[in-house]
Amino acid sequence: MTTTSGVSRPPELRQPNVLRHFGQWLRNPGFISASPTLIFFLIGFVGPLIIVLGFSFVPERTFGFHGDWTVENYVHIISESYWISFAWSFGLAAATVVCCLLIAYPVSYGLARIFGRWAAPVMLVLVIPLFVSENVRLFGWYLVLLKGGGILAGSTKFLFGLDTGTLLYSPGTILMGMVYVYLPYTLFPTTLGLSLVPRDQMDAASDLGANRWQIFREVELPIAMPGILIGSLLTFVLAIGAISEAKLLGGANIVVIAHSILHEFTYAQNWPLGSAISMFAIVITGILVILVMRRLDLDRLLGRK
């Protein structure tokens, strides 16, 4: 309870001791509850990142820290053709985000506004694939698109007598696979965001003379934005790390960044170069994440306060 106090008493003896304040802070229940996850975060996330950072500065094909540091790995990334992998990964990830948003928005709108009591079952049906390993689902696409005997080709041949080629091994198919795998990550946060838009605010805007497009731009989009942002960010970041889609649906034609990294760590046995490539991906996604995170009010988004 706050109040605008009248006469306040002279302040208590001030504790100038910063350490004492810090000690008190350490003992508050919030920090105590946070500490297990924080410790885990340090060991499981910060530690590994520091190691990757360290490895990216050691000479090629070494497997430990021996005191000599170099930036040649970073020079390699630029001088050799790794930027092509980067371009593929970022291009595919960006395209995935755009496609997912366009596809997911109407469904989210339906879940948040139209389906009513059917929203929960529809949601459940849409969640199920998320819990089936993406490898299994991509294998399913592989079966659908398989040359000659695939479900798609087989059906067209059986029904119309048409011989179609295969759609496998093209950038479009990889994109389709990525959209397929990451759609739920756009869909659910967007639905959450849209369900935050109060119906009466939309009604009020309409009553004040706004048309459908103006309502969308002036009311719906700004309020739903946090959810849309989280969904897009999640999709983008996961898509940067995508590896199975290109491998299973794209064959050897397109080498994405995650695959380059895996390659350096396995066949090429060049950990430092692999680490440097990873650092590139980490820094770029990190900047994006921080930019978006700064705009979010998680209490409002999750707690609906």
Partner: peptide
Amino acid sequence: VTKQFGKLAAVND
């Protein structure tokens, strides 16, 4: 009885 929250006396004497 006084309750101080920082510099603010929510309950004052």
